[in-house]
Nucleic acid binder design. Structure first.
Length: 778
DNA sequence: AAAATGGCTCTTTTT
DNA sequence: GAGCCATTTT
């Protein structure tokens, strides 16, 4: 590829001038390999964006010859925006910026032939992959109790992430013999369905790029003059090999922090960044050690946590900022007490003038979120949750997507199986088995086996008729798909398949929520089309489908005036003014599962704690409890060992009123720590309340007398603000209501009218439709 | 074929 | 505690 187009002169100041010394050095190394060890809060995104801007303006590198890889779509979007503000939209648009998966998907659409795929391949997400494994197990007559699909799948992924296909698999023991067969079947199934999983996206591109005899490989190796990788500590072996192959120019800049490597369980390998210098002896090394984000106390607490880590690249994180407030460590009685205390501090922060969007609550596992959520809702504190049940994993959403995917790629068997009898159209298990047999015998996808099966006879006339009717339906929708915009197609699918009618006829409360979710899905297709139109393109169905499977929860995190709640994993890369880390107890954080053969990885837990602490700019609160009900039983809590690693001088210890009034707690606490040397020694005191030492309210007494509402099914994705009691006489969505028989519930929806009917989720009773006059607002 | 029951499991999940 | 799956029940 030659650069015939003259590149415009720099229209913006030389970026390096705006950077301080070590960052400027990082930018200055325009040629050859470069590794940047970027401590938490040291401004690494700034370094990458300025480096790119510098390459474009100072070194005249054409934008389409620069590849920057990030780990989330959100990070990619932010980077592109920042470069656009330096170099202009037109130039930023030409850059290759994206996640590993999105970038590879794009390359693979171009070079699909070399990978043996058709251009319209589909990407199977986690649940699709599990469905494939389940089907393969069934075909091999293997017991899915002995071989749980989840475990089998994670084993397969482990192989793939290290670049080994079934041919390179080395079975150890009889369990592995079975795994190998499943692995082979799995690969065959995907191939036949013209489908790839997440690993394949990267692996397929890698295989092309590493093939010296392939023309596509030549193109890939010559395509990029500069390659940059963010969050490099979290790449796996395959991703690393790909980066090396694509950076044939050796202009490879990797930026990361080995202290923040928290995805080992997904194949990430910290040793890659630590050993980078071994692989590239001529690499320039830059360390960014000044933290610009956090107060002195937060930085010192973070250092205390990470210092004992083994094998870390030495880094001296420092800050020029004032010590600020001490890190507050709080002992609570139980999770309710903890949540109530957090809610009070949130209110206090708000009163100090901190916007709620600048407050975050972290936890180690999602299971901890429920109680926090209940209290925030009761206190009318607006919040949003990242993670948990995803919108795109809802049954009805997946159904519609399956229809769309089958219209895009009729070979996709997982999708065909999902929707062939939804809504019910008399194509039952027996018919499907016959269809599978024929498909296997002819070695074709299920859809292509329909005609051979119906021609062959031996099928009941009713079954034959249903199958042909289904095929006609799909064929006529495919015609539509060829011309109509995806949103029209989606609406048409809902009508013509009878899906909408099925929901209309079902007058249970859930069906309304489902209809709404489907409307939301159509809305998201419209958004996609509008976005494409704005960029002067036509939004194609396959593009939408790809985006849906490659998008994540964190991408949807809104910049809204609400408290954010998320796992510590989800918090990586974010920062907040005020941060609460809850559940800082041994066996919760560091986490220890019940399964002894899955050994805990204390090093990674330590890094996770470091990530959590370094998210805070001004204020950090860390809570632990004496007792916690989790996974159905009560654990007695011992403060996390990581708390003991905070330097005493940067910490203030507190107890909630409820905790200090309970003798067993104090005794238990002391007993638990007799021989722990370096506990924070600050005097335990009651939290300061405005206007004196009023005892903190005990939440537990309230919670036992009045059960708080549980979530409605659709609400976990991104929580809407608890609605003010307004509109239909206090019956706005989210409002808390009381019912004679069912107790307290949360309103999901209201059908207005003379005699309004509310859809309410009751804790313990599920979702009910109730005439509003039988409800009273609290 | 839908509904009810019982048993099982339960980290983290950038894509 | 609660969600998911498989099995049983009607």
């Amino acid at each position: 590829m030659t650069d015939l187009v003259a590149f415009p002169p720099p229209a913006f100041p030389e970026p390096a001038d705006e950077l301080n010394e070590p960052q400027a050095r990082a930018v200055a190394h325009a040629e050859g390999p470069l590794v940047v060890f970027a401590g938490a809060g040291s401004g690494k995104t700034r370094v990458i964006t300025y480096r790119i801007a510098n390459l474009l303006a100072g070194h005249r590198v054409p934008p389409y010859r620069v590849l920057a890889v990030t780990f989330t779509n959100k990070a990619a979007g932010e980077m592109r925006r920042r470069i656009a503000s330096l170099a202009g939209d037109e130039i930023a648009k030409e850059l290759w910026i994206g996640t590993f998966h999105a970038t590879c998907a794009r390359l693979l659409r171009r070079f699909h032939d070399a990978a043996g795929l058709e251009r319209n391949f589909v990407i199977y997400d986690d649940s699709d992959q599990r469905a494939v494994v389940a089907r393969v197990l069934k075909e091999l007559s293997l017991d899915d109790k002995r071989y749980p699909p989840r475990q089998v799948l994670s084993r397969i992924h482990k192989e793939k992430q290290e670049g080994r296909g079934p041919d390179a698999f080395e079975p150890q023991g009889f369990f592995d013999d079975a795994i190998l067969k499943v692995y082979e079947g799995y690969e065959r199934y995907l191939r036949k369905a013209n489908a790839v999983d997440f690993d394949d996206l990267i692996l397929s591109v890698l295989r092309i790029a590493e093939d010296p005899k392939s023309l596509a490989g030549d193109d890939l190796r010559a395509r990029f003059r500069h390659v940059l990788v963010d969050e490099f500590q979290d790449v796996n072996q395959v991703q690393y090999r790909l980066v090396r192959a694509l950076a044939a120019s050796r202009n490879l800049c990797v930026v990361g922090d080995d202290d923040q490597s928290i995805y080992r369980w997904r194949g990430a390998d910290v040793r890659i960044v630590r050993n980078f210098r071994r692989d590239f002896p001529d690499a320039a090394i830059v360390k960014l050690e000044q933290n610009y984000r956090s107060t002195g106390n937060v930085v010192r607490a973070a250092l205390g946590v990470i210092k004992p880590a083994k094998d870390r690249e030495p880094k001296e994180l420092w800050t020029a900022r004032d010590p600020g407030e001490p890190v507050v460590v709080v002992a609570a009685q139980n999770e309710h007490d903890e949540a109530a205390w957090v809610a009070e501090r949130v209110r206090e922060a708000q009163a100090r003038g901190v916007p709620l969007g600048e407050v975050a609550i972290f936890y180690r596992v999602h299971a901890q979120s429920r109680v926090l959520e209940e209290v925030l809702r009761a206190e009318r504190i607006p919040y949003q949750i990242v993670g948990g049940m995803r919108f795109f994993e809802r049954a009805e959403v997946k159904d519609l997507l399956s229809y769309l995917r089958i219209l895009d790629n009729p070979k996709s068997d997982v999708d065909l199986e999902r929707i062939i009898n939804v809504p019910a159209r008399k194509i039952g298990g027996a018919t499907l088995d016959r269809l599978t047999q024929v498909a296997n015998a002819l070695d074709v996808p299920l859809y292509e086996a329909i005609l051979p099966l119906t021609d062959r006879g031996g099928l009941g006339t009713a079954a034959k008729k249903s199958l042909l009717a289904f095929r006609d339906l799909i064929e006529s929708l495919r015609e539509k798909a060829a011309s109509a915009p995806p949103s029209d197609l989606a609406r048409e699918v809902l009508e013509r398949t009878g899906y909408a009618r099925m929901l209309d006829e079902d007058d249970s409360a859930e069906s309304d929520a489902r209809k709404q979710n489907l409307q939301e899905l159509v809305g998201s297709i419209l958004d996609y089309e509008a976005e494409a139109a704005a960029a002067g393109q036509v939004g194609a169905l396959s593009g939408y489908l790809e985006r849906v499977t490659l998008s994540s929860d964190i991408d949807a995190l809104e910049d809204a005036p609400r408290v954010s709640m998320m796992t510590v994993h989800a918090a990586k890369g974010l920062e907040f003014d005020t941060v609460f880390i809850t559940g800082m107890e041994d066996e919760i954080f560091p986490f220890k599962g019940p399964d002894p053969k899955r050994n805990e990885d204390i090093e990674e837990e330590r890094r996770l704690a470091y990530v959590a602490v370094t998210r805070a700019r001004e204020r950090l609160f860390v809570t632990h409890t004496a007792r916690r009900m989790i996974f159905g039983n009560t654990r007695f809590g011992v403060p996390s060992r990581f708390i003991a690693d905070f330097p005493t001088s940067s910490v203030k210890g507190l107890m909630t009123a409820a905790a200090s009034s309970e003798r067993s707690f104090r005794d238990g606490y002391r007993d638990g720590h007799r021989d722990e040397p370096a506990r924070p020694r600050g005097p335990w005191s009651h939290p300061m309340e405005r206007g004196g030492d009023a005892p903190a309210r005990s939440f537990s007494s309230r919670s036992t007398s009045t059960p708080t509402p549980a979530r409605a099914p659709g609400e976990r994705y991104i929580e809407r603000e608890p609605a003010e009691a307004s509109g239909e006489g206090g019956l706005a969505r989210g409002a808390r209501v009381m019912h004679e028989k069912f107790g307290v519930g949360a309103i999901i929806d209201v059908d207005p009218g003379d005699d309004p009917i509310a859809t309410v989720k009751f804790s313990g009773w599920g979702v009910k439709r109730i005439k509003a006059r039988f409800l009273r607002t609290e």
